[in-house]
Design a protein around this nucleic acid. Structure first.
Lengths: 189, 189
DNA sequence: TCTCATCTTGAGGGTGTTCTCAAGTTAGGT
DNA sequence: ACCTAACTTGAGAACACCCTCAAGATGAGA
C-alpha cells in the first residue's frame, strides 16, 4: 500500500487537461495518435504527459474505458431489446460496425492494438462476450447455421476494424460483411 | 528521342543485382519494403538504387509487372477453364484471395498502394477487368443476384488485401468473404 | 597507359515518432 | 517572506525511414 499524498494543484490540473485532450484526440484519430499532439492540445509539455501517465497505454486506460464502456453498455441494451435471436445478432453486427466506424478509438480497442491497455480490453471483452452469447442463442434457436461460429463473428468485427482504418476504403465495403451474415441464416425468409 | 548510349558494364550489373534483390524483397515483404534493405541485399549502395530507378515506383515498375503479369495470366486461364459462370467467378474470388495471400507484392498492387507504378497498375487492371466480365456473365446467366455489383467484387478483393497486410489477422478470416459470395447466388442449390 | 565521362558511394540533411533527464519553476506549509 | 519537495520543461538521444550530392572510383576508348 503506497501512502497516497495529495497531488499539488498544478499537477491535478494538468492531469485533467491531458485527459480531456487525450479523449478528444483519441476519438478523432484513434489510439495511435501522436502523444506530442495530445500534449500540445492540452497546453502542457510532453514530459508532463509521461510523468503523469507513464506510457501511451497508461493514458489510454485512464481515459478511454469509461467512454467506450458506456457507449457499449447503451448499445448492448439496445441489442437486447430486439425480439428474436436473429434480430439481436443482426443488430449487434451492424451496430458494432457502425460504432467502430464512428469511433476510431473504440475501433482500435476492438482490434486490440494496445494489449497493455488492460482496462480497455476488459471493456471490449464484455461486448465480445455479448456477441458470443448472441451466436449461441441463435444457434439454439435454430436460426443461425451451426457452421457460423463465434470465431466467424470475431473475424467480421476484426475485418470491419481494419477496413475502418484504411483511408482509401471503397464505398460500402460494409455490404460484404453484412452479406456474409445474411448467408449464415438457416433457410426460411 | 534521347540517343541511347550503351550503359557501362558495372552499371548494367548493378541494375541486374538491384532487380533481383528488389524482386526477392518485394515478394517477401510487400511493395513498402525498405529500399535500404533492397540495396543492401543487392550489395550496392542506396545511392546507386536511386541513380538507376529514380524512385520506389520506378523500381517497382521495373520489376514487379512481369512477374505479377504472368502469374495473373496463368491464373486467368485457369479461371476461364471452368465450366459455368458461377464456377468461374467462385474460382476467381477464392483464387485471387489465395494469390494475394501468397504474394505481398501482388497484394499491394491490387490495393493500389503505389498509384505511380503505372505499368503495374495496368497489369492489375487487366485482372480486375476479368473479374468484372465474370460478374456480368454470371448476371446474364441468372446465377448471380443483380444486387451483387462489380463494386462488391472489388470490395472483396480490397478487404482480402488489407486483411493480408495485418500481421495479427485471425485464422480463417477468408471465410467471411467467401460466405458473402455464397450469399449472392440466386436460389437453387 | 592515360584520360575522362560515367558511375558508385555513404555520410548527411530532412521527417516524424517515442521517451528521458538535468535544469528550472512553483505550490503551499511555516 | 522563504524554503523545498513536487512538478514542469523541452532539448536531445534513439530509431527508422527517404532522398541527395560532393567526392572518389572505374570502364573503356584512344
Amino acid at each position: 500500500m503506497t501512502e497516497a499524498r495529495p497531488l499539488r494543484r498544478d499537477a491535478r490540473d494538468n492531469i485533467a487537461k491531458l485527459q480531456a485532450a487525450a479523449l478528444e484526440v483519441f476519438l478523432a484519430k484513434g489510439l495511435d495518435a501522436s502523444l506530442d499532439e495530445i500534449a500540445r492540445t492540452a497546453g502542457v509539455s510532453i514530459g508532463t504527459l509521461y510523468n503523469r501517465f507513464g506510457s501511451r497505454e497508461g493514458l489510454i486506460d485512464a481515459v478511454v474505458p469509461e467512454v467506450a464502456g458506456s457507449k457499449l453498455l447503451v448499445f448492448g441494451a439496445g441489442v437486447l431489446a430486439k425480439d428474436t435471436p436473429r434480430e439481436r445478432l443482426e443488430e449487434f453486427v451492424t451496430g458494432m460496425i457502425e460504432l467502430q466506424g464512428e469511433d476510431p478509438a473504440l475501433n482500435d480497442a476492438i482490434l486490440r492494438r494496445y494489449p497493455d491497455a488492460v482496462a480497455l480490453l476488459g471493456i471490449c471483452d464484455r461486448s465480445i462476450a455479448l456477441g458470443r452469447d448472441l451466436v449461441r442463442d441463435a444457434h439454439a434457436d435454430g436460426s443461425l447455421s451451426p457452421d457460423f461460429t463465434e470465431h466467424d463473428l470475431f473475424c467480421m468485427l476484426w475485418l470491419a476494424g481494419i477496413a475502418n482504418r484504411d483511408p482509401h476504403a471503397p464505398a460500402n465495403w460494409q455490404r460484404v460483411i453484412t452479406r456474409a451474415l445474411d448467408q449464415a441464416w438457416t433457410a426460411t425468409t
